[in-house]
Amino acid sequence: MHTTSAPPHADDAARSSVGGVTTTGLGKRFGELWALRDLNLAVPQGTVLGLLGHNGAGKTTAIRILTTLSQPTEGTGTVAGFDVVRDAAAVREHIGVASQQATVDGLMSAQLNLTTIGRLHGLSKSAATRRADDLLVQLDLTDFATALVRTYSGGMRRRLDLAASLMGTPEVLFLDEPTTGLDPLSRTHLWDMLSELVRGGTTVILTTQYLEEADRMADDIVVLDHGRTVAHGTPQDLKSRIGDDRLDVKVASADDVARAANVVAPFADRAPALDPERHVITVPIKPGVRVVQVVRALDDAGIDAIDVTRREVTLDDVFVTLTGAKPVDDADEAGRQGQERKS
């Protein structure tokens, strides 16, 4: 992928170390509201960091600061060896950004969108055209290369947005929820493509609400909640903290919730989460436990279980397990709200 390497820059002397992303105590506050707080990262070149969290957790704020779109109020950060505040211009020469909002131009063709961005990266007209054609092939958009982007489906727009972020052959690629709105096939295709980029030495920072995506793509995962880092580790580390599948047990009356929790406790490898309002006990079950064993135990105890469902771990479970509380699902990214207030 890195065929057209970036030209040497006069400010290369300002680089601390080549590639990767580091942050120290990075934070952003809008008045009393912390959109991001004390983020510490050390992402080596050629690896993938997954920022995992709900809406409003601070993922987008982190990305906006690292891509120089937003100024941190605390701490420092470097991208590709450049300080995100002092050397913002140098950072922009080494990054690619695909944001949550597909930011391609609906009134231009895919090809023209890409060549425009290539030209702004300083590529010559012919180099920009070549690079655009390559990327259109890779992202399977050649059949629609000359069609207006406003005729594109949501998934096609996201693919084109990714192509746009790759036009400058970035050292560090930022993807804000890259697979939201993609069908499963496109998602797998995108993951494969990213893996190839990473093998070529690209550093990727991606945000996601999907555990599966973080697990599959990331070498390292940071779980954010209300701007704070609640967990940081490899997918294996997190898995060992979070456990395997979950069993949702719904009982008929609220009085049964506590009793049922005691009955299912032997099958759990960590404390079950109780939801008295919905009469649901969520049980992190030990490996090897079968649903029928749990049902039988509940039956023996004379508890009226309306429903027993086994499922995979979700992001909610991660938060319940890591923070001990069900997170409030904010309507919007706190960072964005702050930005809107200002404008």
Binding site: T68, H121, A164
Partner: peptide, 13 residues
């Protein structure tokens, strides 16, 4: 409104 501006701002322009 469309966020196009963020794209240009993250480019080395």
């Amino acid at each position: 409104q469309q966020g196009v501006i963020d794209r240009f701002r993250s480019l080395p322009t």
